[in-house]
């Protein structure tokens, strides 16, 4: 029983990180119909900005983290939108898919080439050690991740739901034409979503790197898992993507423990294929009007 609880809590902790990444992915899709196949690399990269800050410039961790956030906003938010998405989106979905795949390769190989091909240790938010929750042993790191990511998700939901700016972004996401008519500056809102996504991946990067170490090819699995989370949850709803993140984290943990660790990604993929075939709008998504 305590074993199950332990797996559940640890799964929720990783799931919370997936949820951040999946939520950003869903936001981009909603506001601009851009599928970001480089989202995994987006999560991999900010950790290296931070490392470059602490290692090369000798900055304290928190300053380096802020610098990393700034760089992420600039490169993964603004530049990504202006240089890749804006020119390609009018050509249709496929060119965007291919271009973001290329961006992913570009980021991955650049880190390998210009920083390191080896996995890099990354400073943890908390000291090592475990705590005991109802008989389940949970690392402090997991507790911190769960708390920080949980707060971030809560804050994002409050921002999107309760503030004027957040509501304007939501309106843009749900129906750009109507938002435009209501006088919402939709172009600026779309830019804000790209910036929000950059912030989300930076946070995810800082949370996940102490656990998995920072490595250039981390994005492959991270991206795949975040996509699966978004699709399983339903990526036309931020809430669906978040729920999907938690679900995927838990399923992954239980699958590895009880079914097969060789096929742990395989289990998630089967989940993905089943959801796409049986409920393409996602478990918590709302069905989009199909015009065939």
């Amino acid at each position: 029983m305590s074993n199950v609880l332990q797996l559940l809590l640890a799964g929720l902790a990783t799931g919370a990180i997936y949820a951040l990444v999946a939520a950003g992915f869903a936001l981009l899709w909603q506001t601009s119909r851009a599928i970001n196949f480089a989202q995994g690399e987006f999560v991999m990269l900010p950790a290296f900005f931070v490392l470059a800050g602490t290692e090369w410039l000798g900055l304290p961790f928190w300053v380096a983290a802020l610098l990393g956030l700034l760089l992420a906003l600039l490169l993964l938010g603004l530049l990504f939108k202006r240089v890749i998405i804006d020119p390609l989106l009018p050509q249709g979905v496929l060119p965007v898919v291919i271009a973001t795949i290329a961006v992913g390769i570009l980021l991955k190989e650049s880190v390998k080439e210009f920083y390191s091909a080896e996995a890099q240790p990354f400073p943890a938010l908390t000291p090592g050690g475990n705590i005991d929750v109802l008989g389940a042993v949970l690392s402090l790191q997991d507790v911190a991740v769960l708390a920080v990511a949980g707060l971030a998700i809560l804050a994002m939901q409050l921002f999107l739901g309760r503030t004027r700016l957040g509501r304007m972004m939501q309106a843009t996401a749900q129906n750009p034409e109507v938002a435009e008519i209501l006088g919402i500056p939709t172009r600026r809102m779309v830019l804000y979503t790209f910036l929000l996504n950059a912030a989300l991946v930076t946070l995810a990067s800082i949370l996940i790197s102490p656990v998995y170490l920072a490595k250039f090819d981390n994005g492959e699995t991270l991206g795949l898992v975040a996509f699966i989370a978004a699709i399983v949850g339903g990526f036309n709803q931020v809430r669906g993507a978040i729920a999907g993140g938690f679900l995927v984290g838990v399923v992954d943990n239980f699958g590895a423990a009880y079914v097969s660790s060789d096929y742990r990604t395989g289990i998630l993929l089967l989940l993905l294929i089943a959801v796409i075939l049986l409920r393409p709008e996602g478990l918590w998504g709302r069905a989009e009007e199909r015009t065939v």
Partner: peptide
Amino acid sequence: GYPALRVQHHYLAFVTLGANTLVFL
């Protein structure tokens, strides 16, 4: 090809990507 009958571009990219990983595993 069967998933392609049900879903569009981007989903299809994910399904085929998943299939690739399954074969690899």
